[in-house]
Amino acid sequence: MLEIRNLHVSVDDKPILHGLDLAVQAGEVHAVMGPNGSGKSTLAQVLAGRDSFTVTRGEVRYLGRDLLALPPEERAREGIFLAFQYPVEIPGVANIYLLKSALNALRKHRGEAELDAMDFLALVRDRLKLMGMDEALLYRPVNQGFSGGEKKRNEILQMALLEPKLAILDETDSGLDIDALKVVADGIESMRSPQRAIILVTHYQRLLDYVVPDRVHVLSHGRIALSGGPGLAQELERRGYAWVDEMQIAAPGPGTTGETAS
């Protein structure tokens, strides 16, 4: 579904990603882990089409197409969804209006009829229940005055409504207490499907206790330093990210992206 080859990304001429490779198939859940500043969020934003980043080399294929050539809205309509690390507050725009506009933009793109108000509301209510959210949040301005946990739930609510093909969740677990983490994790888990790929970008392993990934990748200094099975996340939790760097120093050069036993 997604194939990233030799991706180099800079922001203000400062390289962030250099030589990142990653392949994700439909039905898989991948975790991208790494220390702060390793480029995790940059990767998530570049995939969604943020233009403040410059791709200097490499390519990204999504469903056989050149993803980088598409504007952000085209990517969204083609089934890519980014759950933001910091969901943006939009005063004056009701949450329900955004949800409806987003869903209808996608449906229109797929050649489907727009949902009428009744069908739409029924669908939203169903998803709200899944996320344990109060209906009143629909009528508040997007993310304005939401608690940290409400903002993250709201992102997952949007995902559950838009049913993307490729969901990228950027630090969705950060700032959540244990109860909220459970709700968010259940929401993500419910989205697991043979037709869908999910990329969990996270600093900590705790979300992965609830949503067990098929593959775990460790990002270090702008590239994937290590890939493995779900056991890699636990090993990281135990040994810290410095361990990955030490391994890289021990075995520099090509081929460092090795498997660890799990």
Partner: peptide, 14 residues
């Protein structure tokens, strides 16, 4: 710019 990108990432055109 963050608000514009957020809306576009949800499928609304620029």
């Amino acid at each position: 710019a963050d608000q514009v990108f957020y809306l576009r990432s949800r499928g609304l055109d620029d």
